[in-house]
Design a protein around this nucleic acid. Structure first.
Lengths: 217, 217
DNA sequence: TTATAGCCTGAACGAGTGTTCTAAGTCAAA
DNA sequence: TTTGACTTAGAACACTCGTTCAGGCTATAA
């Protein structure tokens, strides 16, 4: 931790912060003159000079002679801070199966969109989000109003938190899934609660894997 | 569902594929001429023409007059948006007070950074994040490993989820806070659990208000 | 045929943009 | 004070790059 990096001048920090912000907002890096204007530097050569310093210090990479030839580098916390848009496709309630979206998900639909940062999810494809309604998921440590981000089915591993539809009970539940000898163990996230065992694995329909939970205040 | 999108010509698909690849490889979008060279288009105006078509079809967004003013759009994949960086300042455990950061937060410090999308938090100032350690917050529906995003103290309202330090008990807990006549009611988020009452309000130190909770898979 | 629309060509214009050069200011060490 | 490394300023240059324009080619409809 605390990698030894060259200390940056105030101006260099200002430039770096602006570059990050600009890329966040625009999807491409700023020009030298845009940096100069924002950071109150009248001369393009000074921006150029400090960009070279930042490259030496390992904060970014420059591609010579190309416009906007900048790339953030190093510092693993600044991964181009990308945002993943996940469609909010419905609600999850105890009494109904999970509404898994069609594979031809309508990107441009008017449905609500949940934005999460890239590092919150392991992968960006096929994700969908559901709003939890009711208190039936409390033993999964999930509250009324929470947002659950899921990935459809996809052969769940032991220990994954999954949404399952129990055909016997007519009930959706979120639990940690464990295949045991000839039964299925569904373990609540809440460590004070006991697992339930399903003796007939065919009555367990895994609907999706939970990859993240978000709770607004 | 499956919104009717205009079909793309082979050339347009080729351009789109190249733009995606280029951005992936370089961190910034290609120029019109770079696209033309790669896609065997001799004229910049044709590239320009097809880029406009792609924009009409919703596949990308163009910023007029700026070099490399391209952005991929649509597809619930990475897009640019506002991201709030919250410093991860420590852990929250039952046996210690919450480590509230100094007001002169060092953005560029070595500490870890949690990124959240702008719409997840009500405001962006003074936020800090804590990682929950242990199972002591289960009655707040918060698990070991969850990330709690907080705002320091700031006169908590009735009904806010707050982190409080109970001086009598030497214990930190996350509860919904209610000031009643002459006592304080701390209500667990889990509706199946009972509130606790503190008869001596002075022994309740509100350390911060919880504005969001994040749980990775 | 004529007309219209869609797609393409080639070239040129002008603003955008990285680079380079000279000169000067700042600050600490000698 | 002098020296030298580091930083900044301003200007000029040459290339990059988005835009625009006049026109050509092909296919479909009138």
């Amino acid at each position: 931790m605390a990698k030894a990096v060259k200390k940056l001048s105030a101006r260099q920090e200002s430039i770096l912060a602006f570059v990050e912000r600009y890329i966040d907002e625009n999807g491409y890096p700023p020009t030298i003159r845009e940096i100069g204007k924002e950071c109150n530097i009248s001369s393009t050569s000074v921006v150029n000079y400090n960009l070279n310093k930042l490259e030496e210090a390992g904060y970014l990479v420059r591609d010579g002679k190309v416009s906007r030839g900048l790339r953030l580098a190093g510092q693993p916390n600044i991964v181009t801070s990308s945002v993943v848009r996940v469609p909010l496709v419905g609600r999850i309630v105890a009494s109904e199966p999970v509404p898994v979206p069609e594979s031809d998900f309508s990107i441009f639909g008017d449905d609500a969109i949940i934005e999460v940062t890239r590092d919150m999810v392991p992968d960006i494809d096929d994700l969908f989000a559901l709003e939890v309604t009711g208190d039936s998921m409390v033993d999964a440590m999930i509250n009324d109003g929470d947002i659950v981000i899921m990935r459809p089915h996809q052969n769940a591993q032991n220990g994954d938190m999954v949404a399952v539809w129990l055909t016997d009970r007519g009930e959706t539940t979120l639990k940690y899934l464990y295949w045991e000898q000839d039964r299925v163990r569904l373990q609540p996230a809440n460590p004070t609660m006991s697992p339930i065992f399903i003796e007939d694995p065919s009555s367990v329909q895994v609907q999706g894997r939970v990859v993240a939970v978000i709770r607004h205040a």
